[in-house]
């Protein structure tokens, strides 16, 4: 044991460090379940703000849901919004401070159920903000109930026999929906289940912040993520299930860039 520690001491040296936690993440331990995608998305957004050097000009808005305490982890000025109202809160800030960077961080229940109206109208007005939409097809915080994005047949604590679309309606593809609105300038769907996807999300996140300088409309980034606790799976199983079930229904890729639809085969 002692021998191993000595070996680690030799390895952990400044010149050997290839990865560091961004100072824009606090030292607070994440409240998220091991295997959850929230932590990675938090890191990516904070790294982008750090690299762009805009901490002093950025205001984030946390939702109601698992990420309600995002402000405990993100080392920036933040507001906590009522359930679903984050795009309205962001609008209030951005209209008063048009040169600041404003983003919301919302889950599927927050953004696509109770906050549908605020989401659609902020997108349609073309508020110059960024919306990060974490879609794991379930209400995590309240214990795994059906979300507006729960897949047909998918089990949750309120669809214990699977989502029957005849009774419970269909999952909503809100990202495709907001892409049709003239106010959205950049609409994309990403994921964080592989290193390659994390890098792609980071590129998209960077674009979402840089777009705010252009004042040409809203940037909307969906991140398809897992909820291994809510899905009752191991993290590895959950990522596999996500690839096999979520991604065919919610395909990854850019939908709209610089205000124009991306051609897809």
């Amino acid at each position: 044991m002692e021998k191993e520690n000595l070996r680690l001491d030799e390895i952990i040296r400044e010149e050997n460090i290839v990865f560091k936690k961004t100072p824009l993440l606090t030292d607070k331990v994440f409240s998220y379940c091991p295997g959850c995608g929230h932590g990675v998305v938090h890191r990516v957004i904070m790294e982008v703000i750090d690299e762009l050097g805009i901490q002093s000009e950025t205001i984030g808005i946390s939702p109601v849901g698992c990420s309600v305490f995002a402000y405990d982890f993100m080392n920036i000025d933040m507001q906590q919004a009522a359930h679903g109202r984050a795009p309205a809160v962001a609008t209030g800030i951005k209209r008063c401070w048009p040169d600041k960077y404003v983003f919301t961080y919302q889950g599927d229940g927050d953004l696509a159920a109770i906050g549908t109206s605020e989401t659609i109208h902020a997108c349609n007005r073309g508020e110059h903000i960024a919306i990060f939409f974490i879609n794991n097809g379930i209400y995590g915080m309240t214990g795994g109930q059906m979300a507006p994005t729960t897949l047909p047949g998918m089990k949750s604590s309120t669809t214990p026999y699977g989502r029957d679309t005849r009774l419970m309606g269909n999952p909503i593809k809100i990202t495709e929906l907001v892409a049709t609105l003239p106010g959205t300038y950049f609409v994309t769907r990403q994921s964080v289940h592989t290193a390659v996807n994390v890098r792609k999300l980071k590129k998209a996140a960077k674009m979402a912040f840089e777009n705010q300088k252009l004042k040409k409309g809203l940037s909307f980034i969906e991140v398809v993520s897992n909820c291994n606790s809510g899905w009752k799976m191991s993290p590895i199983q959950a990522n596999r299930w996500m690839e096999e079930n979520m991604l065919p229904f919610y395909p990854i890729g850019d939908i709209k860039i610089n205000g124009n639809f991306v051609k897809r085969n």
């Binding site: 205001i59 808005i61 507001q79 919004a81 009522a82 109202r85 309205a88 809160v89 962001a90 609008t91 209030g92 800030i93 209209r95 008063c96 401070w97 109206s117 605020e118 109208h121």
Partner: peptide
């Protein structure tokens, strides 16, 4: 001064919340 017609009273009061949180008279 900013004047905005919101999509609902819910949105309006939450716009007030956001702007007030930055110290503005709203």
């Amino acid at each position: 001064m900013v004047v905005l017609q919101a999509e609902s009273e819910l949105a309006a009061i939450n716009m007030v919340y956001g702007a007030a949180g930055t110290g503005k008279r709203v």
